[in-house]
């Protein structure tokens, strides 16, 4: 196969159809930009989950009786609760916090609001067992096992709160993916349409090629490459858009969260997001092109 011939046909095709080509590239870029945004969302959520989950613990609050009378968790039923927590395979460590320590911590947390500290009294705070798990995501097991046991007032799972927070982020991610999917559908239809128009404007050439015995690859490769080139340009534009978005807006927004949401690094955009976008785009363009040619262009 003569590469120079195929290449010149591709360039001719893209130029002949220039408005359509631009529309195809832009739609692809928008769709891929959204998709890339979704991927970055996922990456950010992963990072956050990893850093937050490290500190997540389950707190087993003890009853008033224990809180008032058992200073070091040596009496029953505190000792056996502690014992059974420590022997649980999912548990990494257990720390007992008595009423006085709880009060100290309360004072520390609310030192900015002295009126609140003044109002609170140590008797209002329960003693507790702070349980760290090997896998914080599996906190349900502890909650289920210890809720309602003798000596336990209630079990608080910080993971539950984080779950709600991550649910919010996840729905943001899902929304981005859905919009990306709709834009991708538009891009795929545009690619299919452009190839049909391209094949129609070149029907005389294609007709002659078939009659003189050109193979299917020879007649259809230029159209296919046209779609793939446009797809690649769309991907590059999409990545450029993401990088621009990072510097223009995202960096400032994320900085305003005071580190609660980690910054998106340039490296995150360039790898693995950029290659994923490029490969996805070229693959989808090629498949769309191939299917369109099979369905609409006779050989």
């Amino acid at each position: 196969m003569r590469a120079s011939f195929v290449f010149s046909e591709v360039v001719t095709g893209l130029r002949r159809n220039v408005t359509m080509t631009i529309a195809m590239i832009l739609t692809t870029a928008i769709s891929l930009g959204m998709f890339g945004g979704g991927l970055l969302f996922v990456r950010t959520i992963d990072k956050m989950q990893a850093s937050y989950l490290d500190d997540v613990e389950v707190t087993v609050y003890l009853t008033e009786d224990i809180s008032a009378n058992d200073q070091d968790c040596t009496g029953e039923p505190c000792a056996s609760i502690r014992q059974s927590l420590e022997s649980n395979q999912a548990v990494e460590s257990v720390v007992f916090e008595d009423r006085a320590q709880a009060y100290e911590r309360f004072q520390r947390i609310f030192e900015g609001q002295p009126e609140l500290v003044e109002l609170a009294r140590p008797e209002a705070l329960p003693a507790s067992l702070h349980v760290k798990l090997f896998d914080p995501a599996r906190s349900d097991v502890i909650v289920q096992e210890f809720s309602g046991q003798a000596g336990v007032a209630n079990v608080d799972d910080q993971n539950k709160f984080l779950d709600r927070f991550f649910d919010l982020l996840n729905s943001g991610r899902n929304g981005t993916f859905i919009i990306a999917l709709i834009a991708a559908l538009a891009a795929v239809l545009l690619i299919a349409n452009t190839i049909q128009v391209s094949a129609y404007t070149r029907r005389t050439e294609v007709g002659i090629m078939r009659l003189v015995g050109a193979t299917r690859w020879y007649t259809q490769l230029p159209f296919l490459l046209e779609a793939v080139v446009a797809g690649a340009l769309g991907a590059i534009l999409g990545v450029a858009g993401l990088v621009a978005l990072k510097y223009v807006a995202l960096d400032r927004i994320l900085e305003a969260t005071g580190g609660a949401i980690p910054k998106i690094e340039l490296f995150d955009v360039l790898f693995p997001v950029a290659p994923i976008l490029l490969i996805t785009s070229m693959l989808i363009s090629a498949v769309t092109g191939y299917v369109t040619l099979r369905l609409y262009v006779r050989h």
């Binding site: 005389t204 050439e205 002659i208 078939r210 009659l211 003189v212 015995g213 050109a214 193979t215």
Partner: peptide, 17 residues
């Protein structure tokens, strides 16, 4: 394509590019 390479075609409307 092999078959068609053994044949040439001419039409009423020339079909030139």
């Amino acid at each position: 394509p092999r078959l068609r390479q053994t044949m040439g075609c001419v039409f009423q409307d020339f079909r030139l590019l």
